[in-house]
Design a protein around this nucleic acid. Structure first.
Length: 633
RNA sequence: GCCGAUGUAGCUCAAAGGUAGAGCAAUUGAUUUGUAAUCAAUAGGUUGGGGGUUCAAUUCCCUUCAUCGGCUCCA
C-alpha cells in the first residue's frame, strides 16, 4: 500500500506503484489536463515518475511559478529542436526559463533574422502538433560524454566537465532532439499551444565577455492563444508607460546628441518634479538627524589615490584633467569629500553618529551599450549620505536606515520591493573577518525586521558588503534604488578617528548609503510606476484653468491668482479653442485637475472641477473646491 | 565594449536611384463654443554626420555618431 499525501493534507492510497499523472487524474480530469510536472517529497519530477513509497505529492500547473518554469524550459527544448532541424550546423549551449519566457543560446556564425524566427516558430508549431513525448534517460558521466561527443555538441561537453564523476546525469529526448538536462519536463510537446519568439541578441558563453558571443533567441509560450494575446497586449501597454516616452510626451527631460549620450537635460516640468522630490528628501533627512553638505565636482588625484578609487574604480572614472600642472579627476562618488569634512576637525564619541547628506552629482563612465534613458546615465545625482558612528552604534544605524528607506519609498507610492544582501566580491579591499562580521550585521538587521531578501553572492562594493533595494520598471526589469553599504576601507585610508570616553583615538565605522539611489533613476521609476499620472503633490502642473469663452478669461485669472496664493501650481489655457479641445489637451498632459470656468461659474462665483481620468466633479464654491484639492495632497 | 535592429519636419509615420509627403503640434486669421479634437491659410526637412559608386544618392556601398533590444557591467 502506497500512501500519497497532497498539499491540502488529504491523502490517497494505491496498491502498487503510481505516477503523479495518475494521482492528478484521480483528483480531476482538468488537473490531469493542466498538469505540467510534479514534486514528490520536494523533488521536482516528470509526471510519469514512478512513485513506489509513501510520499507527499504536489502537482504543478501553469498557474504557479514552478509549473511556468518547466513549461517554458520545455518550450526552449522545442525551440532548440526546431533550430537544429532548420540549421543543422548550429551548436546548442544553454536554454533556461526566465521570469517571462525562455531563451536558448546557439553558436552560429550568421545572426538569426526576422525570417529565421518566423521559420523557427512555424517549425515549433508543427513539432508541437505532433505531441512528441519528452523521454528521460539517466546515464553515467562517461555515457553522457560519449553521447554528446557523437553529436559534436562541444558546449554540452564543457558543461559535463563540471559535473562530478559519480553523479547521475539525465538527458531528455523529444523526437530527433536530445539535450543534456536535469528536467523535469512536460509530458509532450503537444502541451505547448501558443508560441511567440520575441527577439534575438548576442550573449557571451557562460556570461563571460572573454568567451565567444553566442546568438540568443528569446521567446514565450502559453497553454492558450488568449494568454499569449494578453501577454503581448501587456507588453504594448508597458511600452506606453516607458519613462522615455512619457518624458518626451510630457516634456519633462531630454537627452541630446549634441550635448552627449547619458547626459540629462531637465526641462522645466521635469525640473519641478525633481525639485519637489529633493525638497521632500531634504526635509525628511533633517528630521532623521542628517546634516546637509555641499561638495565640489572635482578633486585632486591625491584624494582619489587615498580613497582607493584610482585603484579599484578607475575604469569608471573620466580621464584626468590638468589644472596648473596638477592632476584632477571629476568625481564618481562623494565619499572622499564627506570624509574630508569629517576630518576637518577632531570629533568626540559624544558627537557620533554624524550623518552627512548631499544630493551629490557624480559622473561615471558607462560603456556605450548600457545607457538607458534616465535609468542608466553618465552624469547623475545620488541622494548620498555617510554615517560615521562607533562600532556599538552600527547595528542600530543599519536598522534605522532600512526602515527609513522603505518609508521613503512608500511615501512615493511604491509598495513592492526586492531586497538583496550583496556579499564580498573577488576584487576588494579589507580583511575577510571584517567582511564576515559586517555581512552578518547587515543580514541580522534584515532578519530582525522580518524582511525577505536574497543573497547576491559576490555583488558587494569593493569596499564593503551592502543591502540593495530594487524597484521594477514598466517591463518588470528591476532597478536598484536604495543601497546601504558598509565601508571599512575608507576610514582606514583617510585615518578617520574619534576620541573615545577613554580619551584615546578610535577608528569609527562608516556606512555609505543612498535611499532613492539616483534622482534620475528614481524619477524614471516613479514615472513608470504611476504611468505618468503623478500624485497631486508631485505633479508639475496641478490644475489647468479652462475658461469656456474669452469672456471668462478675467474670472479665470482671478481664480488662478487665488490658487497660486494657496500654493497650487496652475496654468491658464487662454487659447481660443473649444472647451473640449482644452480638456483633451489637459487630459493628455496628465494634469490632475481641470478647472472649468464658464458664464455660470462667473455669475455665481463658482468653480467646476474635473479630475484627470475621473471626469466632471460638478460646480462648487471656492471652499468646497479647495477642500477637494487639499484632500488629494 | 560585444551581438542584432533602427535613424526622414517638434511628435507619430509615408514614399522613393531622377533631389520628399500626411496627421498631430506650431504660427496667422476667422470662430466664442458647457466636459477628450471648430474651420481655413501659412510655415516647417542638407532624409543623423562624413566619404564612396553613379550622369544623378535621401534610396546602393563604406565609415562614424546616436537610439532601441539584449550580453557584460552598474545608482
Amino acid at each position: 500500500m502506497i500512501k500519497i499525501t497532497l498539499p491540502d493534507g488529504s491523502g490517497r492510497e494505491y496498491n502498487s506503484s503510481v505516477t503523479a499523472l495518475k494521482v492528478a487524474e484521480d483528483i480531476s480530469p482538468e488537473l490531469a489536463e493542466e498538469a505540467i510536472c510534479a514534486e514528490v517529497n520536494n523533488k521536482p519530477v516528470d509526471l510519469n515518475y514512478p512513485i513506489d513509497t509513501d510520499s507527499t505529492v504536489v502537482i504543478h500547473t501553469f498557474k504557479n511559478d514552478k509549473g511556468k518554469e518547466v513549461y517554458w524550459h520545455s518550450t526552449a527544448h522545442l525551440m532548440a529542436q526546431a533550430v537544429k532541424q532548420l540549421f543543422p550546423d548550429v551548436k546548442i549551449a544553454i536554454g533556461p526559463a526566465i521570469e517571462q519566457g525562455f531563451y536558448y543560446d546557439f553558436d552560429r556564425d550568421e545572426p538569426f533574422t526576422e525570417e529565421d524566427l518566423q521559420k523557427i516558430e512555424t517549425r515549433m508549431k508543427e513539432l508541437s502538433a505532433k505531441a512528441l513525448p519528452y523521454y528521460r534517460t539517466e546515464l553515467s558521466k562517461a555515457e553522457a560524454i560519449e553521447l554528446f561527443s557523437k553529436m559534436d555538441e562541444t558546449y554540452k561537453l564543457e558543461l559535463l566537465e563540471d559535473i562530478p564523476e559519480n553523479e547521475i546525469i539525465s538527458s531528455y529526448r523529444q523526437g530527433d532532439f536530445i539535450d543534456l538536462c536535469r528536467g523535469p519536463h512536460l509530458p509532450d510537446t503537444g502541451k505547448i499551444k501558443a508560441i511567440k519568439l520575441l527577439r534575438t541578441s548576442g550573449a557571451y558563453w557562460r556570461g563571460d565577455e572573454k568567451n565567444k558571443m553566442l546568438k540568443r533567441i528569446y521567446g514565450i509560450s502559453f497553454p492558450t492563444e488568449k494568454e499569449l494575446a494578453d501577454y503581448l497586449h501587456f507588453l504594448e501597454e508597458a511600452s506606453k508607460r516607458d519613462h522615455r516616452k512619457l518624458g518626451k510626451d510630457l516634456d519633462l527631460f531630454s537627452i541630446n546628441d549634441e550635448v552627449g549620450p547619458g547626459l540629462v537635460l531637465w526641462h522645466p516640468k521635469g525640473a519641478m518634479v525633481r525639485h519637489l522630490i529633493e525638497t521632500y528628501w531634504k526635509e525628511e533627512h533633517l528630521k532623521k538627524g542628517y546634516q546637509l553638505v555641499y561638495t565640489p565636482h572635482l578633486g585632486r588625484a591625491n584624494l582619489w589615490e587615498t580613497s582607493g578609487h584610482l585603484n579599484f574604480y578607475k575604469e569608471n572614472m573620466y580621464s584626468k584633467m590638468d589644472i596648473d600642472g596638477q592632476d584632477y579627476y571629476i568625481k564618481p562618488m562623494n565619499c572622499p569629500f564627506h570624509i574630508s569634512i569629517y576630518n576637518s576637525s577632531l570629533h568626540s564619541y559624544r558627537e557620533l553618529p554624524i550623518r552627512l547628506a548631499e544630493l551629490g552629482t557624480v559622473y561615471r563612465y558607462e560603456r556605450s551599450g548600457v545607457l538607458h534613458g534616465l535609468m542608466r546615465v553618465r552624469g547623475f545625482t545620488q541622494d548620498d549620505a555617510h554615517i560615521i558612528c562607533t562600532p556599538e552604534q552600527m547595528d542600530r544605524e543599519v536598522d534605522k536606515l532600512i526602515v527609513f528607506s522603505l518609508d521613503m519609498l512608500k511615501a512615493f507610492g511604491f509598495k513592492e520591493f526586492l531586497i538583496y544582501l550583496a556579499t564580498k566580491p573577488e576584487d576588494c579591499v579589507g580583511e575577510k573577518e571584517d567582511w564576515d562580521k559586517a555581512t552578518a550585521s547587515l543580514a541580522n538587521s534584515l532578519q530582525k525586521l522580518g524582511l525577505e531578501y536574497k543573497v547576491d553572492s559576490g555583488g558587494g562594493a569593493f569596499y564593503g558588503p551592502k543591502i540593495d533595494i530594487k524597484i521594477k520598471d514598466a517591463l518588470g526589469r528591476a532597478w536598484q534604488c536604495t543601497t546601504i553599504q558598509f565601508d571599512f576601507n575608507e576610514p582606514e585610508r583617510f585615518d578617520m578617528i574619534y576620541i573615545g570616553g577613554d580619551n584615546s583615538a578610535h577608528r569609527p565605522y562608516m556606512i555609505h548609503r543612498a535611499v532613492l539611489g539616483s534622482v534620475e533613476r528614481f524619477f524614471a521609476t516613479l514615472l513608470e510606476y504611476h504611468s505618468g499620472n503623478l500624485p497631486l503633490w508631485l505633479a508639475p502642473v496641478q490644475i489647468m484653468l479652462i475658461p469656456i469663452t474669452d469672456a471668462q478669461i478675467n474670472y479665470a485669472r482671478k481664480i488662478e491668482e487665488q490658487l497660486l496664493e494657496q500654493g497650487f501650481r496652475c496654468e491658464l489655457d487662454s487659447r481660443s479653442e473649444k472647451m473640449g479641445y482644452k480638456i483633451r489637451s489637459a487630459e493628455k498632459n496628465k494634469i490632475p485637475f481641470m478647472c472649468i470656468l464658464g458664464k455660470n461659474e462667473a455669475a455665481n462665483n463658482q468653480i467646476t472641477l474635473r479630475q484627470h481620468t475621473v471626469g466632471d466633479l460638478g460646480a462648487m464654491n471656492w471652499e468646497e473646491a479647495i477642500a477637494i484639492l487639499r484632500k488629494e495632497l
